[in-house]
Simulated scan of single mutants.
Amino acid sequence: MTVTRAQESRSATTRGISAYRGYRPPPGMISWAFHRITGLGVLLFLLLHIVDIFLVNYGPEVFNELLFLYRHPVFRIGEIILVGAVYYHAANGVRIMLIDFWPAAYRYERQLFYGVMAVFLLAFIPTAFLMIRAIIQAG
């Protein structure tokens, strides 16, 4: 039985929105995007840190004036996000090295992605808990 284009479109519209599953990117694409985003976040912090250290040349007063920034609650939350970015970037970097140097690992890309997420969560959740507790106790 051949289905014409008109019948196909009619059946798709009668099924409604529930028939649309949407686009689901593969794990490799998701990990690539997260790897780039976390890398840019770490780079941004590194640039801020370079500027911070550069200000030491202008004397301790100028350097100490900038330290208020590091004590601000928004920056402290940013530090938690930074630690998460470093954890993910490092774990995903190991996944990338496995795929690059062991070609058979490409067949297990989905499992490696879930492994990276598991390692990230196992490392990040306790660290974030300790950092949040320190913020609350200091504040």
Rank of each mutant, 00 (worst) to 15 (best):
M1E: 11
M1F: 09
T2Q: 13
T4G: 14
R5Q: 05
S9F: 10
R10T: 13
A12D: 15
R15P: 05
I17P: 01
I17W: 08
A19P: 00
G22V: 15
Y23R: 08
Y23S: 07
R24S: 13
I30N: 02
I30R: 03
S31G: 05
A33Y: 11
H35A: 08
V42F: 10
V42G: 06
L43E: 06
F45Q: 10
L46D: 05
I53S: 14
L55W: 12
L55E: 14
V56P: 01
N57L: 13
F63G: 00
F63Q: 05
N64L: 13
N64F: 09
E65P: 01
L67S: 10
F68G: 05
L69R: 06
L69S: 07
L69K: 07
R71E: 12
H72C: 10
F75S: 13
F75C: 14
R76C: 07
E79C: 09
I80A: 12
I81W: 11
L82R: 15
L82Y: 11
G84W: 06
V86A: 15
H89N: 05
A90W: 01
A90N: 01
A91R: 01
N92Q: 08
G93N: 03
V94I: 15
V94N: 03
R95C: 01
L98D: 00
I99P: 02
D100E: 15
D100A: 15
F101H: 07
P103M: 04
P103H: 04
A105H: 05
Y106L: 02
R107E: 13
R110N: 11
Q111A: 12
Q111Y: 05
L112T: 06
Y114H: 13
Y114N: 08
G115T: 07
V116D: 00
F120D: 03
L121P: 03
A123L: 15
A123G: 08
F124I: 03
P126M: 10
P126F: 15
P126E: 13
T127Q: 01
T127M: 03
M131P: 04
I136R: 08
I136K: 06
I136M: 09
Q137K: 06
G139H: 05
G139F: 05
